[in-house]
């Protein structure tokens, strides 16, 4: 599905990712944890193709293709989805219209038939219902005046409707209350599929109680410094990241975690 090798990324001339390697197989869920400023969102942005994130070395292959040659919209059409840590508002643009236009752009590019307004609204209402999201949000401007939790739900709604092959969820749990966390996680779990992979960026182990990952990684200072199973997340929750810093090499950390 996704193969990142020795990825180096600079932003404004400053190196943020420093030789990151990560492989995600179809159907897998990978959790990425790590201290503030480690480069987690940078990873999401690079995958989605944001301007200004310059890849200086390394490679990313997505479904066998060189991801780095594709524009952001081509990546979306190829099946990549980023749920933003801070979704941006687009004043005056109807949320349902936005999402339907996006869906149909993707469908058209893939040679699939477009969904008409009625068909779309039915789908959107159904998915919004699953996420316990107020229908009214569909008729408001994209993320405009949405609460933090509403924005996060809206991201997951988009994911549910666009049905990507690989989804990167950047701190989708931050800002959600306990009930919302459960509901959104259920929404995400419904989308679990042997053909769909996810990278879940989070600071909190409790999300991983709901969305159980296959692998947990620790990203620190631009590299994956530890990988393990769910117990790694629990250890981090208890002990923080300090013990990782104390270990000298990533491989040592790996051993510690397992």
């Amino acid at each position: 599905m996704l193969k990142i090798e020795n990825l180096h990324v600079e932003v404004d001339g400053k190196e943020i990712l420093k030789g990151l390697t990560l492989e995600v197989n179809p159907g897998e869920i990978h959790a990425v944890m790590g201290p503030n400023g480690a480069g987690k969102s940078t990873l999401g942005n690079v995958l989605a193709g944001r301007d200004g994130f310059e890849v200086t070395a390394g490679s990313i292959r997505f479904l066998g293709e060189d991801l780095l040659t594709l524009s952001p919209d081509e990546r979306a059409i190829a099946g990549l989805f980023l749920a933003f840590q801070y979704p941006v508002a687009i004043p005056g643009v109807n949320n349902a219209y936005f999402l339907r236009t996006a869906l149909n752009a993707q469908r058209t590019a893939r040679g699939e038939p477009e969904l008409d307004a009625m068909g779309f609204l039915k789908l959107a209402r159904e998915q919004a219902g699953i996420l316990d999201m107020d229908d009214k949000l569909l008729q408001r401007a994209v993320n405009d005046g949405f609460s933090g939790g509403e924005k996060k739900r809206n991201e997951i709604l988009q994911m549910a409707i666009l049905e990507p092959k690989l989804a990167v969820l950047d701190e989708t749990d931050s800002g959600l209350d306990i009930d919302a966390l459960r509901i959104v996680s259920q929404g995400v779990n419904r989308l679990r599929d042997p053909q769909r992979s996810m990278i879940v960026i989070t600071h909190y182990q409790r999300l991983l109680d709901h969305i159980v990952p296959d692998v947990v990684h620790v990203l620190a200072d631009g590299q994956i410094v530890a990988s393990g199973d769910k117990s790694l997340a629990m250890k981090l929750e208890k002990e923080g990241y300090a013990w990782l810093k104390a270990t000298k090499t990533a491989s040592e950390a790996l051993t510690l975690a397992s």
Partner: peptide, 29 residues
Amino acid sequence: GEDQLFYCQSRGLDEETAVAMIVNGFCKE
């Protein structure tokens, strides 16, 4: 906004469609 444009594009809209959409939103009133 570069961030608005990127948001639209990351959902599969090409740049021109994204710009038109943002501008139309700006003019809605």
